[in-house]
């Protein structure tokens, strides 16, 4: 799996595109989110570099991995090739004739997979807001029919990892790179927030991030490994993923669906609680 970077890449120079996409200077609203770090600081859970390192490792192993897998899946979907024609088709027909294999519906289905993996309403909201802002910026930075389609398919804001994967595909990145960007975002945002909130030595904190680099690679590989091949579901056949299977649950006829239900779903109850606590705190600096 080390070399399985999956297909992708709509444009050249994907490595440079990845740097732009992962850069905290990307103007997409990420600077105002702490990923639970602000509430953890308020509660005294994070007081210094040691606590922060543990927090980041935990976040990467749970929310970070899930985000990476969703981003990889989104990138794969965006890079699937037929979406461009399908989006153009939808553009002409309004997407109502069913001839295009419903690309908007597929995006909504993947978005529902993200919802199913995000227990906290506050986290869902934060994720959708960041997704909406990222799509808005990405449509101007890396314009593509897929991003236009996604903006229309989920107008109030698609979940952030899905926006990231679609933006990455439009920038020319592959699913592995998308997963890496998502994993990287999952730890750098909270790390920067902790620097601001606690006045930590920024070099010390960057050392923590450097120490996490192998774990970021591992998370991205694990995310891609979770992208299994498409699953064909015959009408009436038992859903291979059980009662909590595909999010659209449509049993009319043979459904060809990606294996998204098998994507990682690691829960992080502590992060859920931090998100909810943060949401109800009236004296906060960060959005989440």
């Amino acid at each position: 799996m080390q070399n399985d970077r999956r297909k992708g890449g709509m444009r050249g120079s994907p490595d440079a595109a990845l740097l732009l996409l992962a850069d905290s200077r990307l103007p997409a609203g990420g600077h105002a989110h702490s990923g639970g770090a602000e509430e953890a600081v308020r509660l005294g859970t994070i007081t210094g570099p040691e606590d922060l390192a543990r927090f980041l490792r935990g976040r990467l192993a749970t929310a970070g991995l899930v985000s990476a897998a969703l981003a990889a899946a989104a990138c794969e979907l965006a890079s699937a090739g037929h979406d461009e024609q399908a989006a153009a088709h939808d553009e002409q027909t309004g997407g109502r004739d069913g001839q295009s294999d419903d690309p908007a519906g597929r995006w909504r289905q993947l978005d529902a997979e993200a919802d199913a993996r995000t227990a906290s309403p506050a986290q869902r909201e934060a994720s959708r807001v960041q997704g909406r802002l990222l799509i808005r910026s990405a449509r101007r930075i890396w314009p593509s029919p897929v991003l236009d389609l996604l903006a229309k398919a989920v107008p109030n804001g698609v979940h952030h990892p899905i926006a990231l994967g679609a933006a990455a595909a439009s920038a020319g990145c592959d699913p592995y790179q998308s997963a890496l960007a998502a994993a990287y975002n999952a730890v750098t945002g909270p790390a920067t927030a902790a620097v601001r909130l606690l006045g930590l030595d920024p070099v010390t904190v960057h050392r923590l991030l450097a120490d996490l680099a192998p774990a970021l690679n591992d998370a991205a590989h694990a995310a891609c490994a979770s992208l299994i091949d498409d699953v064909v579901m015959e009408p009436g056949a038992a859903d291979p993923f059980g009662p909590y299977g595909t999010a659209n649950g449509d049993a009319k006829g043979s459904t060809r669906g990606p294996g998204w239900p098998a994507l990682p779903g690691h829960a992080a109850p502590a992060l859920d609680l931090l998100a909810e606590g943060h949401h109800s705190n009236t004296m906060k600096l960060f959005v989440s």
Binding site: R25, L26, P27, A28, G29, G30, H31, A32, H33, S34, V129, R132, L133, L134, R136, S137, A193, R196, L197, K284, L285, F286, V287
Partner: peptide
């Protein structure tokens, strides 16, 4: 109201996404 994560100038100059939204 828009929250700016300790960086009010970032939100009006460098990353205006939340304000535009």
């Amino acid at each position: 109201a828009v929250q700016t994560g300790c960086c009010p100038h970032t939100a009006i100059r460098d990353d205006i996404a939340a304000n535009i939204d």
